[in-house]
């Protein structure tokens, strides 16, 4: 166990020494990886902020239940109270037909109501759903419409669907971009490792001659690839944060023009850590691929 640990430390030291040997080349590679990481990460951050901005402006949709005309006020109120126990329902408000007509009058439509011989309105219930998800809203609507006391349910969810579809498209774009640039990251790493292997050909050959396993030879390169990936991930994060910071004033101005207070949110630890883990893994993968290829080419046996 101790030897194993010491061995990994040794590999790590070797990898670090290789960074020190070519600081400028390393810096450029890290920068290139950083930009590759920053593109999908930045788009993702933009999407998060967009979602947040929309969420802040979005009132939860309301469902209006019109009860059947033969349902009495008392029964309607009981039904409204019972609905509150539904998991998908946050709140309900019973509006009796008298309240309804008064509301109409308050809205200046009193003349219209006065012209009618009888109050034409049914009792109604305003339902505030617990969720904004279009699918669950739709399910709730259907469930409520199926009830015996309900005549009709109205739900205006079209704009929620549109926004959701747009955000979904954005997420797909981020995913696509992340896959493409992840491949690029692995390829960049593979290329730098390939150059390194070329420079260290003698060392690898000698190590093979005196009984080094592929794993032994591969290890420092894998560390190198992973460290380079993490550094690139950090650089990408810095780029995104810098971009966000430089856009902050502009965004605040736009938000102010719309009369809202909105500030860009950056990446927290919850986003940074997976980002670094993924870049490390991709760097590792690129290195693994490059070294395995080189080892196959070098072995004459």
């Amino acid at each position: 166990m101790k030897a194993w640990l010491a061995h990994h430390l040794q590999s790590l030291r070797t990898a670090a020494a290789r960074f020190r040997a070519a600081p400028l080349a390393t810096l450029f590679t890290v920068l290139v990886i950083g930009i590759a990481v920053a593109l999908p990460a930045g788009l993702y951050a933009l999407l998060l902020n967009l979602d947040r901005a929309a969420g802040g402006a979005r009132p939860l949709p309301e469902l209006t239940l019109f009860l059947k005309t033969d349902v009495g006020a008392e029964q309607g109120a009981r039904f409204a109270a019972a609905l509150k126990n539904d998991a998908d329902v946050a709140d309900t408000r019973f509006i009796s037909r008298d309240d309804g007509i008064r509301k109409l009058e308050a809205m200046g439509l009193g003349d219209l109501a006065a012209g009618l011989p009888d109050n034409p309105l049914p009792h109604s219930i305003l339902v505030t759903p617990a969720t904004g998800e279009p699918e669950r809203l739709e399910a709730l609507r259907e469930r409520l419409a199926g009830d015996a006391v309900v005549e009709r349910v109205m739900l205006d969810a079209a704009w929620i669907k549109r926004l959701d579809a747009l955000l979904g498209l954005g997420r797909d774009l981020v995913f696509l971009l992340a896959v493409l640039l992840g491949l690029a990251l692995a390829a960049i790493t593979a290329n730098t490792i390939r150059l390194q292997i070329y420079a260290q050909r003698d060392e690898i050959e000698v190590a093979q001659l005196i009984g080094a396993t592929d794993r032994f030879i591969r290890r420092p390169f894998l560390y190198f690839g992973a460290i380079q990936g993490v550094s690139g991930g950090l650089a990408g994060w810095c780029i995104v944060m810098l971009a966000g910071w430089s856009l902050q004033a502009g965004v605040a101005a736009v938000a102010a023009a719309y009369g809202v207070d909105f500030r860009l949110a950056g990446f927290g630890l919850g986003e940074l850590l997976p980002l670094l883990a993924i870049s490390a893994a991709l760097g590792w993968l690129g290195a693994y691929f490059a070294v395995s290829r080189a080892l196959r080419e070098m072995e004459k046996f």
């Binding site: 030897a3 010491a6 040794q10 060392e203 000698v206 190590a207 005196i210 009984g211």
Partner: peptide
């Protein structure tokens, strides 16, 4: 077939490192 980027003793240590002997 020596490694010229490391010291004399490190050259001799290489086979031992390869076999997992360290320290």
């Amino acid at each position: 077939k020596l490694l010229y980027d490391r010291s004399v003793i490190d050259n001799v240590l290489l086979p031992l490192h390869i076999q997992g002997m360290i320290g």
